[in-house]
């Protein structure tokens, strides 16, 4: 009697749980989530696994061992690994800074002086964003060619000096940063232009009535109001600018020496094209991943600040 009562109670309950699973609205997008999970989670776990064992393709019959964090130490304590990390940070921070400053300057130029041509100019400014990084590497190697490139030729005409922009470490680094800046600053232009246009009126008018000068207006009224948007733009540019490969591999080929070998090129060279130290490359990959996760987390945090200014 009591047993049958218990089943009578349990059955509809179980059925309703079952039904609610099959009726869950999450069932429809589930294939998409599963597809993404299958494509992204195993590589992530496999990457962590690869980074704590000792696969080295160049050593035949090497027994696979667990080596703790040796590979991470190999990246973070040896000269070439640390150098790659440094170069990655220099390229990312340098081109991010340049892209945001360029973006701000061009956005103001368009806002103040473009007049009726503003729409057309914004479209032109967008163009580099659509140019393939490979084509960019090609065109910059044309422009900077020491013998036939227009930039060295003009410099020679003006100063009488022969230059090879990608021939020295600083020049090569600056070139890579310039390419990254040119590719991604259009995004800063349109984000900041949107922000400038939607600035609230009251503080600006108040400052004008108080007789603020042009630069005072920009410095003391505009920039503080734009600060949240500048933060979003900056971190977003950082994420994009740190994804560099075509410029370092094709344009400078990591050189001269290893002056432009950043983490991406380091991983590619050490893991695939040159030495086959798969586990070291995987460890460098995990370090890149952590840097990427940190910057994404900062971006998501910062993006929440400016709900009212952001359009």
């Amino acid at each position: 009697m009591s047993a049958s009562g218990a089943t009578a109670l349990a059955t509809p309950n179980r059925r309703s749980v079952k039904r609610s699973i099959w009726r869950s609205p999450w069932l429809v997008p589930l294939p998409g989530f599963l597809l993404l999970a299958i494509l992204t989670l195993p590589p992530f776990l496999y990457s962590v696994y690869l980074s704590v064992i000792n696969i080295d393709v160049s050593v035949p019959l090497l027994p696979v061992r667990f080596v703790w964090l040796t590979n991470y130490a190999r990246v973070l304590t040896t000269a070439d690994g640390l150098h790659a990390l440094m170069i990655s940070l220099i390229i990312s921070f340098g081109s991010t800074f340049a892209a945001v400053v360029m973006g701000l300057v061009i956005a103001y130029l368009i806002h103040l002086f473009a007049g009726r041509l503003a729409g057309l100019i914004v479209v032109l400014v967008l163009v580099p964003l659509a140019v393939s990084p490979v084509a960019m590497a090609l065109v910059f190697s044309l422009i900077l060619d020491p013998l036939y490139g227009p930039v060295p030729q003009i410099v020679e005409m003006l100063t009488g000096e022969l230059i090879a922009p990608t021939g020295n470490a600083t020049g090569a680094l600056l070139t890579v940063m310039f390419v990254q800046t040119w590719q991604w600053s259009p995004l800063a232009v349109i984000l900041l232009l949107g922000g400038i246009k939607s600035l609230p009126r009251e503080p600006v008018e108040a400052a004008q009535i108080d007789g603020a000068s042009f630069w005072g207006m920009i410095w003391h009224v505009h920039l503080p109001l734009l600060r949240p948007l500048l933060a979003v733009t900056g971190i977003f540019e950082f994420i994009l600018c740190s994804q560099v490969f075509a410029a370092t591999d094709l344009l400078t080929n990591g050189g001269p020496g290893n002056a432009t070998v950043d983490l991406s090129l380091f991983i590619y060279k050490i893991g695939i094209s040159e030495s086959g130290q798969v586990s070291v490359a995987a460890a460098a990959g995990v370090i890149t991943l952590i840097l990427g996760l940190i910057s994404t987390a900062v971006w998501l945090k910062v993006a929440k600040w400016d709900t009212q200014i952001y359009r």
Binding site: F33, F44, F245, I267, G292, L293, T296, W299
Partner: peptide
């Protein structure tokens, strides 16, 4: 968490996971 996971996978430099992808 789902949203963060989704956007993180895209915002990574592709080199970060290229070794596991290559070997898988």
């Amino acid at each position: 968490q789902l949203e963060s996971w989704i956007i993180s996978t895209r915002m990574m430099p592709p080199a970060a996971l290229i070794m596991p992808y290559y070997f898988l």
